[in-house]
Structure formats: structure tokens, C-alpha cells
């Protein structure tokens, strides 16, 4: 069961419209290593974790990732606010607009729609946790690329926060992985 807090995990306050950045950022909403895939990868995996530590960690990280989905969507929503048709088209969002308007549709930055294949769930705890560790590192690398691409501090601030969360989640998954290896999994 979930309950909703009427707040973001981290302050987001974007002053400048930036459609190109919105187009890049959508990768972290609906891309292979985005927050939506992360949240439901861990959510799905929690059901077959072999003990209580694994169940708790996968459940709790999945929950935090859902807050990250909300942060990324909020950023995209604010970056596209009051965009004109001409602006959308010149940022390469014409095709997106014809299908989705300025609604939040999970796809990657080149337009591939989100797929549950990104969850990459197996029934094997070591395979799952290896996948999770790699996913955190790939998301970290993507956040670094996104930070490189912009000079807007309103965007860089939340991206630095989200990038650091990938670092922390990786560490937790790594600890769990090592613990299970020691147990002989």
C-alpha cells in the first residue's frame, strides 16, 4: 500500500523554458535506465528476494525511485510550460506533440516508447542484483551527460541530487549482493 506526500523529494524550481532539455530529460522518465524502469524493476524483484533484508531494500528503493519519476516529470513539465507549436517543432518535439501534446508519455529521448522489457526481472537473486547495480551506474552516467549538456543551475541542482542517489543505491545493492554471495547464493 502506498501513501502520497504532497511534496517532491527535492526542490524543483525551473524558471526558463527549455524544450531541447525536456527532450533529453525524457530519457530518464521512459528510457531503459530511467527512473520508471528502475522503480518497477525493483518493485517486481522484491517478490523473490530470499530474505527480509533483500525484501526491505528492494521495496524501499523502488519506493524512492517513484519519487524520482515524479521529479523528472516535474522538470519536463516545467521546461515545456507555455511552449508554442513553433518552439516544439524547432526543438524536434513536433512528432511528440502530434501524438501526446505536452502530456507526459514515457519514452526515451529518441522516441522509443517505454517497454516492460526494461525491468529485466529474473528469478535469480544474483542476476537481479547485478542488473540493479549496472542499472544504477548507467543512470549515473546518463545524469552526468545531462549535466554536461546544460548550464542552467535550476536543472543542474536536481540532476546532481538524482545522480548522487544512484551512487547511494548502487552501494546498498552492492552490500546486499556481497552479503548473498557470502551466504552461498
Amino acid at each position: 500500500m502506498y501513501k502520497y506526500d504532497k511534496k517532491l523529494e527535492f526542490p524543483i524550481c525551473i524558471h526558463k523554458k527549455n524544450l531541447k532539455m525536456a527532450k533529453y530529460l525524457i530519457e530518464q522518465f521512459g528510457g531503459a535506465n530511467g527512473e520508471l524502469a528502475a522503480s518497477f524493476r525493483y518493485f517486481s524483484q522484491k517478490f523473490t528476494m530470499p530474505d527480509d533484508m533483500g525484501k526491505a531494500l528492494l521495496n524501499d528503493i523502488a519506493t524512492e525511485e517513484l519519487a524520482h519519476v515524479e521529479m523528472i516529470c516535474t522538470m519536463i513539465h516545467e521546461l515545456t510550460k507555455d511552449a508554442s507549436l513553433e518552439e516544439l517543432e524547432s526543438a524536434g518535439l513536433g512528432c511528440y506533440y502530434t501524438e501526446h501534446g505536452v502530456g507526459l508519455f514515457p519514452q526515451d529521448s529518441v522516441g522509443n516508447p517505454f517497454t516492460s522489457a526494461y525491468f529485466a526481472v529474473t528469478g535469480d537473486v544474483i542476476a537481479n542484483l547485478s542488473e540493479d547495480m549496472a542499472a544504477e551506474q548507467k543512470a549515473r552516467a546518463t545524469y552526468e551527460a545531462l549535466i554536461n549538456i546544460t548550464d542552467d543551475e535550476d536543472i543542474i541542482g536536481p540532476l546532481l541530487f538524482l545522480r548522487q542517489r544512484e551512487v547511494v543505491h548502487f552501494n546498498r545493492f552492492k552490500e546486499l549482493y556481497d552479503y548473498y554471495k557470502k551466504l552461498g547464493y
Binding site: L8, I14, T74
Partner: peptide
């Protein structure tokens, strides 16, 4: 709501 910017304010 948290995802709505209100004149550049976050909520």
C-alpha cells in the same frame, strides 16, 4: 500540486 510551478515557485 508539487509538479506545478506557480510563477517559478516550487511547492
Amino acid at each position: 500540486w508539487p509538479w506545478e510551478s506557480d510563477g517559478g515557485m516550487y511547492v
